[in-house]
């Protein structure tokens, strides 16, 4: 009985996880890269899902590319860490938000529908400053 209760308790958070739908997918990987969600890291492969809250990391000499639901495209060079802090894409209900945090490394960013419909809903935090996106293609480097 005790075991059953334990099993139930353990499976409850799994249900929450399953209800969480991906906000994007890994499309390109070179070398060693990972996607961490709720503290659990998986090796990044083509098709690996990315969620709101996921942390994307690349090792030395590695790179990674992700395409999001709203058609935002991000790709990363080596030694990079980016957290998808917030992601809301429900244009039918006017709910749009895309926040990320680049803590180190390099990012190539091509903005998508969220930046087009509501530019002030998109921002990228870095250790020294915040970037506001006005619908565009740009590069960001965060040094050590």
């Amino acid at each position: 009985m005790k075991n059953k209760i334990m099993a139930l308790m353990l499976s409850a958070p799994m249900l929450v996880l399953a209800a969480d739908s991906p906000v994007g997918f890994v499309k390109t990987v070179n070398g060693e890269a990972s996607v961490s969600h709720q503290g659990k890291a998986v090796r990044a492969e083509v098709g690996t899902p990315v969620f709101a809250g996921s942390v994307l990391r690349t090792a030395a000499q590695a790179s990674l590319g992700v395409t999001f639901k709203d058609e935002t495209v991000m790709s990363f060079g080596p030694n990079t860490e980016l957290t998808v802090t917030e992601y809301l894409y429900a244009p039918g209900q006017g709910k749009l938000k895309m926040g990320s945090k680049l803590t180190r490394g390099s990012l190539n960013y091509v903005s998508g529908v969220i930046a087009k419909l509501q530019p002030d809903a998109v921002s990228i935090e870095t250790p020294t400053g915040t970037i506001g996106v006005r619908g565009t293609h740009f590069l960001v480097n965060v040094g050590e």
Binding site: T67, E71, F76
Partner: peptide, 15 residues
Amino acid sequence: DFGSAMAARPILPER
């Protein structure tokens, strides 16, 4: 600084 990140860019979405 960005050669590697740019080379990793996925095919752009299409509508």
